[in-house]
């Protein structure tokens, strides 16, 4: 099936996952998680390939994928920032951290910087409430943030990326 205006992806990368899960009932979410691990997001071409192999309709697959906050449909930057807005973070000023991060990077929630370095995603709770406010960048958690500290972390990461 043809769709337009999206980058094509190498679908052979999906083969191992499909070979392992396609016949296992109830494994659609696991397949989608593996797909996102491979591509960094859920490419629409992959949805059609999963549909062909599992027999689930593209509508069903997208219905499941869009239900869960983990799944993304666009590529994300090198650093994915999960900014926590759970209760403890909210009470401790998460809004000010969000403002600082948005201002520093020039992006809002679910957006990626033009250089493809940072993506920002506001999440419900990272479970590090005693260190609120908190953000997680690529599985590393940063706690007890202040607006200045958050800006500094992003600047350090940018420097790190430029040095590479």
């Amino acid at each position: 099936m043809q769709t337009c205006n999206h980058p094509s992806v190498d679908l052979t990368l999906l083969e191992d996952t499909l070979a392992e899960y396609a016949g296992v009932k109830g494994s659609l979410i696991s397949i989608l998680q593996k797909t996102q691990e491979i591509y960094g997001y859920i490419p629409i071409d992959a949805v059609y390939r999963i549909s062909e192999r599992t027999g689930a309709s593209p509508a069903k697959i997208l219905g499941v994928a869009t239900f869960y906050s983990q799944f993304r449909f666009q590529a994300v930057g090198k650093y994915l920032i999960l900014l926590c807005k759970g209760t403890a973070c909210y009470v401790n000023g998460a809004d000010r951290i969000l403002d600082a991060v948005s201002d520093e990077l020039g992006i809002g929630n679910n957006e990626t910087t033009e250089d493809g370095l940072f993506s920002l995603s506001v999440v419900a709770c990272l479970g590090c409430c005693s260190l609120a406010p908190v953000m997680m960048i690529n599985d590393k958690t940063y706690g007890s943030l202040t607006p200045d500290k958050a800006r500094q972390i992003l600047r350090d990461l940018r420097k790190e990326a430029e040095a590479q």
């Binding site: 807005k85 759970g86 209760t87 403890a88 909210y90 419900a124 709770c125 479970g127 590090c128 409430c129």
Partner: peptide
């Protein structure tokens, strides 16, 4: 699936 924001004992 400890989803309550503010609870982390299960983690």
């Amino acid at each position: 699936d400890e989803g309550d924001p503010g609870a982390f004992m299960d983690r």
